[in-house]
Simulated scan of single mutants.
Amino acid sequence: MKFDFTKLKEMNDLDFEQVASWPFEVKFVVALVEAILIGVLSYYLLINDKLPVLEKEQANEIELQRNYEAKYRIAANLKAYEEQLVRLQADFSSMLKSLPTSDETPGLLDDITYVGTSAGLKFKLLNWQQEIPKEFYTELPIQMEVEGSYHEFGQFVSNVAALPRIVTVHDFSIKQDGEVLKLSLQAKTYRTAAAGTVSGGQTK
């Protein structure tokens, strides 16, 4: 059916009691305007207030999807995680065994003295310093000063690093006093946080 725009001129003379006799073009335009008005009113009265809720739920849906994907990856690799956990626990247990207990820490001074004198060094100072508590362990610094040659210093540091208990060496300082070389350094050993305290000692 051809749309006759000239019929729209009759809209000003239409009788609303004779809607059935209105031209098709006029009925179409009136229905279109009513549909637009109903759509606009429906949007502002029914939909507009619900949009923030919809946006919140959409964001929540995305977050839930991410959580699901993360949990799915964990579940899919659960066996590998369990095996890795067993390995980590074994490594942690092995490391704990390498940390001296409160009964063993005084013996470390004897061990350090032994490897030092075996390397040809002469001890001038061997002293426990203040303990430093950490979250999972306690740090036990040892300040020492020795006299000897460069070769003896190197042998000594190598022997300290090879001790069965964990001992690290820090803050090297070498000075020459006449014909004598003096090495000052700090060694650190570690004890689990749950272990007892260490009494300080000093050897000169």
Rank of each mutant, 00 (worst) to 15 (best):
K2D: 10
F5M: 08
T6E: 06
L8P: 02
L8W: 02
F16S: 10
F16Y: 06
V19A: 15
S21R: 11
V26F: 02
V30E: 01
V33Q: 03
A35R: 06
L37H: 08
L37T: 11
G39A: 15
V40H: 08
S42H: 09
S42M: 08
Y43S: 05
Y44H: 13
L51Y: 09
E55T: 10
E55K: 11
Q58A: 13
E61C: 11
I62A: 15
L64Y: 10
A70Q: 14
Y72W: 12
R73I: 13
A75H: 12
A76E: 14
N77M: 11
N77H: 12
K79M: 11
E83T: 08
Q84M: 13
R87M: 12
R87Q: 12
L88P: 00
L88F: 08
Q89T: 02
A90K: 06
D91T: 11
F92W: 05
L96D: 02
S98P: 02
L99E: 00
L99P: 00
P100L: 15
S102P: 01
D103I: 11
D103R: 12
L108V: 04
D110T: 13
D111F: 05
D111I: 04
I112G: 02
K122M: 08
F123H: 01
Q129D: 09
I132K: 06
P141M: 00
M144V: 03
G148A: 06
G148V: 04
S149I: 10
Y150R: 15
G154N: 14
G154F: 12
F156Y: 13
P164L: 04
R165L: 05
D171P: 00
D171Q: 09
F172T: 02
I174E: 11
I174A: 11
Q176H: 07
D177W: 03
E179I: 15
K182R: 14
L183Y: 05
L185D: 05
L185P: 05
L185R: 07
A187C: 15
T189H: 01
Y190D: 01
R191F: 03
T192Q: 08
A193I: 03
A194M: 03
A195D: 09
G201W: 07
Q202Y: 14
T203C: 08
